[in-house]
């Protein structure tokens, strides 16, 4: 059962990847003009180089051949060249940027889940009370606030005005780190504001799920049992209730990964953080289609993998479905 489930999940992942590739393949070809232009037009490209790309992607051949070549190239990690940064390949740009984005996203998501776990559990513990009403109103308000605007304000106040944090970049330029910890410290220093903005803007979604599950969980009989056992209120709340109520929230991490990705696009743009998000922003400005598509594909991959991992984690967390 478990293996069948895994195979099925992987099957779905592959289909979704395929769809992402399909979108990337079709879009440029739906546009008026020559598909070759999209792939093989960079400002300083020579005719020879252009022909090489046309060859490689079979752009002068029938659609079907183009498609198979496209798929083969994709699996080799070949998505062509950047318009703006020719002769950089799309893959090299994307691979450079991805770790930074993941750094932001994963840190932010862990914090979000922890905050949501505590706030959601606490507000459901006295559902309908003042704390519950306040946190709900607040997290909804923060959720409804545009991420990029929050980021602009944060940058302005904490960066430009108070000088608490750097106003951009992901690391001190040309820094010579004496130790690993210094390096990591510098990364975190630069990432503090972007992560804070991501967390503040997006924890509300988790918190809502956590709270609503918790509200029903605390009516369960095993909570009464735990209370009757005389364990402390904290232990009942966290060890018994919240531990059970967190499962839907944890599953939602997979689906919400793509929201975090969306959020990182804005924060990276505002904070000049050289991750995928900033790359997307620059590519939009320059209409650097190959890079844009590469980013879309790599983000799809990350989201799909995150989904898979979360599903597996969920299986570990809930003994009922482990068997």
């Amino acid at each position: 059962m478990s293996r069948r489930w895994l195979v099925r999940r992987i099957g779905v992942a592959i289909v979704v990847l395929f769809v992402a590739l399909l979108i990337n393949f079709i879009l440029p070809r739906l546009m008026p003009g020559d598909a070759a232009d999209i792939y093989a037009t960079a400002g300083r490209m020579t005719e020879q180089e252009r022909m090489a790309i046309v060859q490689r992607f079979g752009l002068d051949q029938p659609l079907w051949t183009q498609f198979t070549k496209y798929i083969v190239n994709s699996f080799q990690g070949n998505f062509g060249y950047s318009f703006t940064y020719y002769p950089s390949t799309v893959m090299s740009k994307v691979v450079q940027a991805l770790p930074w984005s993941l750094f932001l996203i994963i840190n932010a998501m862990i914090l979000q889940v922890i905050i949501a776990f505590i706030l959601g559990a606490t507000s459901a513990w006295k559902a309908g009370g003042k704390f519950d009403a306040t946190t709900q109103a607040l997290s909804l308000a923060l959720w409804a606030t545009p991420m990029f605007w929050l980021a602009m304000l944060a940058l302005y106040f904490f960066g430009a005005q108070l000088h608490w944090f750097p106003i951009g970049g992901q690391a001190t330029a040309a820094a010579n780190y004496s130790s690993f910890f210094e390096r990591i410290g510098d990364y975190y220093y630069h990432a503090t504001l972007p992560i804070a903005v991501l967390v503040i803007n997006q924890f509300g979604g988790y918190q809502l799920i956590m709270r609503n599950t918790m509200v029903t969980t605390i009516k369960e009989h095993y909570i009464t049992t735990a209370e009757a056992k005389g364990v402390s209120e904290r232990a009942v709340k966290y060890r018994h209730a919240a531990r059970n109520a967190m499962l839907p929230m944890v599953t939602s991490v997979g689906l919400r990964f793509s929201l975090a990705v969306a959020g990182s696009i804005f924060t990276e743009m505002i904070f000049n953080y050289n991750g995928i998000g900033r790359l997307i922003f620059q590519s939009v400005q320059m209409r650097d289609y190959p890079v844009l598509q590469g980013c879309f594909f790599i983000l799809s991959c990350s989201v799909i993998i995150a989904n898979l991992l979360v599903d597996i984690l969920y299986h570990r967390l809930d003994p009922r479905i482990r068997h």
């Binding site: 979704v16 209409r287 879309f296 983000l299 989201v303």
Partner: peptide
């Protein structure tokens, strides 16, 4: 729906609207 729910929406929207 499954596919749409997994694909990251904003990047998809960005790519589509860029074209």
């Amino acid at each position: 729906a499954d596919i749409l729910l997994i694909l990251p929406r904003l990047p998809l929207l960005i790519v589509l609207s860029a074209y």
